[in-house]
Amino acid sequence: MFGLKEDWSLDAPPRYFTLEDYTGNEARWCPGCGGHSVLGVVQRICRDKQLPPEKTVSVSGIGCSSRFPHYMATYGFHGLHGRALPIACGIKSRRPDLNVWVSSGDGDCFSIGAGHWVHAIRYNMDMVLMVFDNAIYGLTKAQTSPTTHQGTKTNTHPLGAPLPSINPLTVTLGVSNVSFVAQTVDWNVPHLYATLKTAYEHKGFSFVRILQRCPQFSEHTYEEYKKDASRLKLLKHEKGIQLDDKITARFPVQHEHDPSDKAKALTLANDLDPIPIGLLYWDPDAPSYSDFTRLGLEMPVDKKIAALNDALDHFAI
């Protein structure tokens, strides 16, 4: 990163950021909430990538996950329920220089914001979407979410959620121009880190579903998966998420998967037990809508004025 150069001069950057530079308000999620590990990981990635805090924007909707920006010391936008993605895409449209991280939840993204989710995938603008999927509405206290398992009792369905849950991975993979689909879990921090870092490095829209524990309302949902690592299927590939061998060894079920194979990715996405974690799909060549929205960014004022006068000439009498 920096150090002594060949001529013995010191290659020190004018600014070096530490974790503190990304640490905002004290996180007020419940103890044991998966949000804490995601926050720590994102702060570490920011530090490891030395992202200037002023060039980094954390965008969110509404819900437990969407408190995320308040806990970062970067720029942040805590917006409306379900509407983080239009804001994030708008920011990115004319400011490609900003690093954009979006935090959303299973209700925020897959329910009220579902329309934006589908279109943001297709726009493929360079940002990371982290969906904190705890399969329940937390902030409003235990209502059924689109990913609540069928039969789970909630405050809105005391007899049990009546329908099978939505599969966010297959939906995402089904959208044209999808470019990065990964799944990880909040309780395996090295995998979480490696996944989000790879997502950040991808130049396009990175969809990362994070299976997350909610100790308050849906502890049971992932409890078995947490206790028994064989309920997870680790996806491995040279183009996939790179893990330390020691970490890899902790997963009894491993599966070699080429993330450029969308058909296989869809088959894997339909596997619910064991749950696949890792990079399901990656297409670094998918076109980005940013290439369209950023057109004309550097146009000088005199050229604009000349073009405006040409436009007026067209109507002149």
Partner: peptide, 23 residues
């Protein structure tokens, strides 16, 4: 395009204003 601007046709009216607010 000749003045260096961009028209974004959003996926819906809500996204249209959200996108503008973001920018």
């Amino acid at each position: 395009p000749s003045v260096g601007g961009c028209v974004h046709q959003a996926e819906d009216e809500i996204a249209a204003i959200g996108f503008a607010i973001g920018a």
